[in-house]
Design a protein around this nucleic acid. Structure first.
Lengths: 120, 120
DNA sequence: CTTACATATGAACACCTATTCATATGTAAG
DNA sequence: CTTACATATGAATAGGTGTTCATATGTAAG
């Protein structure tokens, strides 16, 4: 394993394949706009399925399908309250990660792009 | 008035659809194990296509295909050095976000932290 | 020039996935 | 009981995507 020496304060780039797959799995779930919006909705507190659907303009069926995946991945957890079921972020760890990403995206643009593909 | 933030200054859950799609796009790219490993490889510094391929056990062709996507999304940027082309994270912003996620996954164990927020 | 190496590109294929529709399950109220 | 509401589930489908193979482009050296 001819690995390049770690540079500076950055974590040493190496990540076990298992962890990589685990991370990729989480990224993949958040990689769908509908699912990402659902997760973001829960950042403000537990939300019922119906509220999420109405708020995002999605069908309750579709929201439920996505919630099943987010539930299986332990990103969200359900809590029954009467007829409704409220979903919340599974733990503070997930909440922090998501909030961090949202915060980063909401920041003003950092630098301009270089130059890229040229098409003759 | 924004909803009450529980732990830190959580952003008020709302995110414009454009930003949501932009974020989801980035997540989707990182949602593939091969692509995620490629990005993580560049955390330690610029890496040539061949080195990445050899290091990850992927074909140079596949790596190049993935690099094209990461390049188009401005996550990585190429730099020619002789015959080889080195790829590095496009900016410190991206680097920080990725490193943050990796650090979170590498933490020993994450356990659920319950907290009551909003109760109608 | 030719040769060898490094990367990129296009096509084809198999696989996966997001969405919709119809239907089922569960729950509170009349 | 029945009715109405909230959520879940299964099937079917259209579109997307990762991978491989073959080939092209670019670059340094002999």
């Amino acid at each position: 394993m001819p690995k390049s020496a770690s540079l500076h304060a950055l974590p040493a780039a190496a990540l076990s394949d298992d962890k990589a797959i685990e991370l990729a799995d989480m990224f993949r779930l958040l990689g769908d706009p509908s699912r990402l919006r659902i997760v973001i909705e829960t950042l403000g507190g537990p939300q019922s399925v119906g509220d999420i659907a109405a708020n995002l303009g999605l069908s309750p069926s579709l929201v439920s399908h996505h919630l099943r995946l987010l539930r299986a991945a332990r990103l969200l957890s359900p809590e029954r309250r009467g007829k409704q079921i409220f979903y919340r972020l599974h733990d503070a760890h997930i909440a922090h990660v998501i909030a961090d990403m949202v915060a980063h995206v909401q920041e003003p643009e950092h630098e301009a792009a270089h130059e890229e593909d040229a098409a003759p």
